[in-house]
Simulated scan of single mutants.
Amino acid sequence: MAAIVYFRKVCETEEHVEYEFGDDPGRFGRRLTVDRGSRSSTVHDALVDHTFLKASQKLNSLYAERGVWPERGMSVS
């Protein structure tokens, strides 16, 4: 079974980056915040599931690769 998650940056401050994410690129239903210092993520609805973990891991991977937080993206496996 394939898993897909889309994400889009909502806002960015010196301390945090906030994203909306979900399995439908036209309708994001959830949000997560990345702490820029620790690069740890928290999900706003407190539901730590595969979709959240996949988005969080992809965001950190892209940041490590590019040195900037992506505006948008997706992860498929």
Rank of each mutant, 00 (worst) to 15 (best):
H16V: 13
T13G: 12
N60A: 07
D35V: 08
A55W: 00
S38I: 04
R27T: 12
S61D: 06
T42M: 05
K9I: 02
P70I: 03
D24I: 11
F52C: 06
G73D: 10
R30G: 05
L62S: 07
S56G: 10
E20N: 08
D35I: 07
S38F: 01
V34P: 06
P25I: 10
L32H: 00
S40Y: 12
R72Y: 14
E14K: 14
A2E: 15
S38M: 02
A64W: 01
D24A: 13
V68A: 11
E71A: 10
R36T: 05
H44P: 09
N60E: 06
C11E: 11
R27H: 14
E20D: 15
M74E: 13
W69D: 07
E71V: 09
G73C: 04
V43G: 04
F21M: 08
V48N: 11
T42G: 05
E12Q: 11
E65H: 04
G29A: 15
E65C: 09
K54M: 15
R27K: 15
A64E: 10
S75N: 03
V43Y: 02
R36K: 12
V43D: 06
E15R: 02
E15V: 02
L53D: 15
A46S: 05
S61M: 09
S75V: 10
I4H: 07
I4R: 12
M1E: 15
A46L: 03
S77R: 08
G26N: 15
M74I: 10
F21R: 01
E12T: 03
Y19D: 11
A55L: 03
R31V: 07
E65D: 12
V34I: 14
W69A: 07
G22L: 03
A3C: 08
L47C: 06
E18L: 09
V17Q: 01
H16Y: 12
E65F: 03
R8Q: 11
D49I: 05
S56F: 00
L47P: 03
Q57R: 04
A64I: 02
V43K: 14
E65M: 08
L62Q: 13
G67C: 14
E71H: 04
S41T: 06
R30I: 02
S61L: 07
F21K: 00
V48F: 06
V5W: 08
L47D: 05
T51A: 15
R66V: 07
I4D: 09
E14D: 13
E65P: 14
V10S: 09
G29S: 13
F7L: 01
Y63P: 08
D49G: 10
H50T: 14
R39L: 03
V5L: 13
A55H: 04
V34G: 07
D24P: 01
G67N: 10
D35P: 08
T51I: 11
L59A: 04
E15K: 02
P25W: 13
S40R: 15
Y19Q: 06
A2C: 10
C11Q: 13
R31W: 05
P70Y: 01
